[in-house]
């Protein structure tokens, strides 16, 4: 059952210290800026953040990092031209990094959302990112065992929701949203607009409302 929240503050009010938070976005595209700002105000700390990047400039995820609320980042591409907040924390040893190939990051969350216990994947075989992981040869090819990544909370940015929580996204801002929405115990979505049920064609729904817990217009 989806709740249409009056404010972003209400939508993230119960995020607990120590939570694993899945944060959508590929750089700024699809980044749930309003929800992150609300999470900063809410004050939860000691967080593990799973996101493709580790923040850009001084806004969004970077602002959350700058407040010292994040213990660990699980991501594929932290180092960017404007990732100075993460870079400084990392060099000072104040933040932990688990580097995950981008496809594995997505698939590990997909597995969590789909109830898959683990999966064998060819990505990273023979590289430092597969060190210490179980491998298996299947039909002559070597695969690495990858474990699911499950979130306590997902913060996602979509374009439009209906009152049943069905979502559509906008262009490449879709990126991690649909996968993260499936992989968290509680999925919170910011959208540009909420429409009545029936106003989104069921044929074009990308994230069905079963995966969505709270929606707020931002």
């Amino acid at each position: 059952m989806v709740t249409i929240c009056d404010s972003a503050a209400e939508a993230v009010a119960d995020v607990a210290d120590g939570s694993t938070v899945l944060v959508g976005g590929f750089g700024p595209a699809g980044m749930p800026f309003t929800l992150i700002d609300a999470l900063i105000d809410q004050g939860a700390t000691d967080l593990t953040v799973v996101s493709n990047n580790a923040g850009n400039a001084d806004v969004g995820l970077a602002a959350l990092l700058a407040k010292g609320r994040v213990r660990k980042v699980v991501c594929s591409y932290p180092r960017q031209v404007d990732s100075w907040v993460f870079d400084a924390l990392y060099r000072e040893g104040r933040i932990e990094l688990e580097l995950v190939p981008q496809g594995n990051l997505a698939e590990r969350m997909r597995a969590a959302g789909a109830g898959i216990g683990a999966f064998f994947c060819p990505t990273g075989v023979g590289t430092p990112l597969a060190e210490g992981k179980e491998t298996r040869e299947i039909d002559g090819r070597t695969y690495v065992l990858e474990m699911p990544i499950k979130g306590d909370v997902a913060l996602v940015c979509a374009h439009r929701a209906d009152r049943a929580g069905n979502l559509v996204y906008r262009r490449t801002a879709r990126n991690f949203g649909p996968v993260m929405a499936t992989a968290a115990a509680t999925t919170v979505v910011q959208v540009s607009e909420v429409v009545d049920v029936g106003e989104i064609d069921p044929e074009v729904v990308v994230t069905p409302g079963i995966y969505v817990d709270r929606v707020v217009v931002a």
Binding site: P78, Q80, F86, R91, L99, P101, T127, L129
Partner: peptide, 12 residues
């Protein structure tokens, strides 16, 4: 600071 993105997935 290491960053891998999609390189490993693309490569294989």
């Amino acid at each position: 600071i290491p960053a891998v993105g999609g390189a490993m997935d693309l490569a294989i």
